[in-house]
Structure formats: structure tokens, C-alpha cells
Amino acid sequence: MIPENERALSELIGTILVIILVIAIAGIIAALVFGWSIPLQRTPYFVSEAEAIDNASVVRLFHAQGDPVSLYPGATQGLPMKMTLASGPYFYEVAPLPSAAEKGWRAGETLYLFRNASGVWIADSPALIQDSTGFAPGHWRLSLVDITSNVLIVQHTLDLAGDGDGPVPLPPVAEFTANVTTGTAPLVVQFTDLSMSLIISWSWNFGDSGTSSAQNPVRMYALPGSYSVTLTVTNSSGIGSITKNGYIVVTPPVLPDGTIAGYTWNDLNGNGMWDAGEPGLGGWTIQLYDRTGSQIETLLATTLTDPNGYYSFTGLVYTPASQGMYAVREIVQPGWIKTHPATEYHFIGLNNDNKYIGGINFGNMIL
């Protein structure tokens, strides 16, 4: 008879073998169903060391240990790999100089990576570094990838700089967006720059006489109107600009029943129309009268415009219609002339169909 302990061991081993067989079958089925492939080639074993030299304009790359590596098309020695260098919008696939094109890179050997006007190159001797211009200052990623399996083997992060101008970026392409484009006054808008290439400066024109040099500015539109927004960006390769016409639309604030409201503005061109970019006038006196027909009766209230030129009269009678007859005028300040309205007063009637009214505006220009 088989001892009890040997029988238990035999059953355990049998169970393990069954589990392994099931896993193997499941792997084969998954490969057939999902198209998985099992690579048969060997991934390179490779250790390298990298440092920036020559005022951080050249990279010295040392093969510390591992397999011989081929970085050169047509090389007869070493496992094939490619080297890339990237930072922000810049990406280079590094090429060997012709003098090293058929050599393998073995443990104990040093390579030199540099840039000139023709590209980014690998040299096997510092004597072969020619007309190095360096790189755009910043953090760069140096990657070595196994070409056969497309697997990243080694990656180094380097702080590089330039003895010369560094890489030349593409000309800028301006673009932007905003978190809101319509709303009632005052409307606060967050602009976000979406420009492409290595941008070094931003110039915004918000269409209301406001400007900014921030990358992602915030603007408050105090006055109703339609505003065109322009963004101009620059880098070392040129200028890019975009204008979005009528991009921001600001409507008057919602008014409660029994309200008359409006603005006093600086009519810069004197045309009697409130054009984009013409600011409000704060601290101007506005008067409210009742009236009978065109006959001005009693002064009911006086107010001052706020810093944006806005004013309002609230709690007014609007029914019956015969009691909701009003006239509004401004007191023109010395050195100014009124351009809107053509008459001294705005005549307003409030009733059940028109319980409030906005846009009772006054234009003025400097004499």
C-alpha cells in the first residue's frame, strides 16, 4: 500500500500540474481570440549612464554594462535600438554620424550626442562634434527603445542648455477659448490660451479697450455689448494672431418690476451710438421726474452712476398706466456735450405690459 503521506503529496503535485495546464490552455485560447502574440526575441539587457557636458550643450552617454547595442542602420553588431530626444514641442530621432554608421556600441564605450544646424547626431569621439549649437534650455528625455519589440529599455532625464540659439520652434499658431461667452452684465470671463508651439509672449485685446499680457487672463465685462477678442502670440520664429468677432455677448442685467435703468457712456467718436470699447462714465447725476404727457412735473429721485456708468430707479408705479409716466435726464458735467438722446429727457411709460425698462442711456463726449 502507498503510505498516506505519499498519497497526499502525489495528489498535491497532480493538482498543481492540472492548474498549470489549465492556465496554459487559457493563455493559448486568449491568444487566438484576442490576437495576442508571445515575442520570441530576447529583450536587450542594457545599462547606460548619461550626463550633460560642455555647458550642458552635449550629452555624454556611457555603455555601463550589458549587451552590445546597434544604434546604426545596417550595423552588423549588437541588438537594434533607436535613440530619441524630446522636450515639449521638440522631438528628435537621433542619427549616427557616417563615421560610426556600422559600429556596435559595447560595454565600456562612450558616445556623444550633440545638435547642429543639420540635426541631432551621435558621435563616437568628441573630436567629431562639429558646430554644436546646444538645445533649448529645459528638461529633456533621452530614450533608448528596442526596435524589435518596441519596448523602452532606458530613459534619462537631462537639463540641457545651448551655446547657440538652440532648436528653432515652429511658427506660433494662436488659439484660445473662454469658460463663458454670453451672460448678463457684469460678466466675468476666464480666457484660456490654446496656442501651439513654444510661445514666449501673449497679447490680448478684449474688445472693450482692455488688454493683457497674461497667458490665461480673466476679464470682467461691465457693460452690455458684443465684443471681439484678439490674441497675438510670439516666439523666436514669428507671430501668430487670431480674432474671434462678436465672441463675447453681454446682455443688460435682469430688472425687477417697477425699474428704470441705463448707462451714461463716453461717446469717444461722438456718433451718438454706444460702440464697443467706449467706457461708462461714473459719478454722473441722473434725475427722475413724473410727467403728464410731455409736461415735466415733479422731481422724484436723484442718483449717481456707478463706476461702470450704470444707474437704476426702483420701486416705481407701473399700474394703472396713467400713473406710470416718467422722464429721465442727466446733468451734463462741465467740459462735456451730450450726444444721446437728441432731446433733454428720455420719456418712459411703465404699465402691465412694460413693468420695467432698461437701456435708458446717455452719451457724452468731451468738448
Rank of each mutant, 00 (worst) to 15 (best):
P186Y: 06
V180P: 11
N205D: 11
W202D: 02
V188A: 11
A178Y: 05
S201Q: 02
T192E: 15
I199F: 01
L198V: 02
S203L: 07
S197E: 03
M196D: 07
L187C: 01
F176H: 02
V180A: 13
T181W: 14
D193A: 00
V168K: 14
P171Q: 05
T181D: 15
A185Y: 05
E175W: 14
W202I: 01
L170W: 07
P167F: 12
G166F: 02
N179E: 05
T182W: 10
T184D: 10
P172L: 05
T192K: 14
T192G: 13
W204N: 00
V173R: 14
T184V: 11
I200W: 08
T181E: 15
S197H: 03
T181P: 09
V168S: 13
G166H: 06
W204D: 00
G183F: 04
N179L: 08
M196I: 10
T192W: 15
L194H: 11
T192Q: 14
M196F: 06
D193C: 01
T177N: 14
Q190E: 12
T177D: 15
T182N: 07
A178C: 12
A178V: 12
G166D: 07
I200E: 10
I200V: 08
A174V: 12
F191E: 01
S197Q: 07
A185H: 07
V180H: 11
N179H: 08
F191L: 03
A174F: 10
Q190K: 13
N205S: 10
F176M: 01
N179Q: 05
P171N: 04
S195A: 05
T182A: 08
T184Y: 14
V188T: 13
W204P: 00
N179S: 07
T181R: 15
V180G: 09
M196Y: 05
L194R: 13
G166R: 07
G166Y: 09
I200M: 08
S195R: 01
T192D: 14
Q190P: 08
V173D: 12
M196E: 10
N179I: 01
N179F: 06
F191V: 02
T177P: 14
I199L: 01
E175L: 15
S201R: 00
P169G: 06
E175V: 14
W202Q: 00
S197V: 02
W202Y: 02
T177L: 14
L198T: 06
V180R: 15
W204V: 01
V189C: 06
F191K: 01
P186Q: 07
S195Q: 04
S203Y: 05
L187A: 01
E175T: 15
V188W: 08
V168T: 13
W202H: 06
N205W: 04
A185W: 06
V180M: 12
A185S: 07
P169S: 04
M196K: 10
P167V: 12
S203W: 03
P171G: 11
S195F: 04
V180L: 12
I199V: 03
P172D: 04
P169C: 05
T182D: 12
A185G: 06
V173F: 12
T184G: 11
I200N: 10
P171S: 09
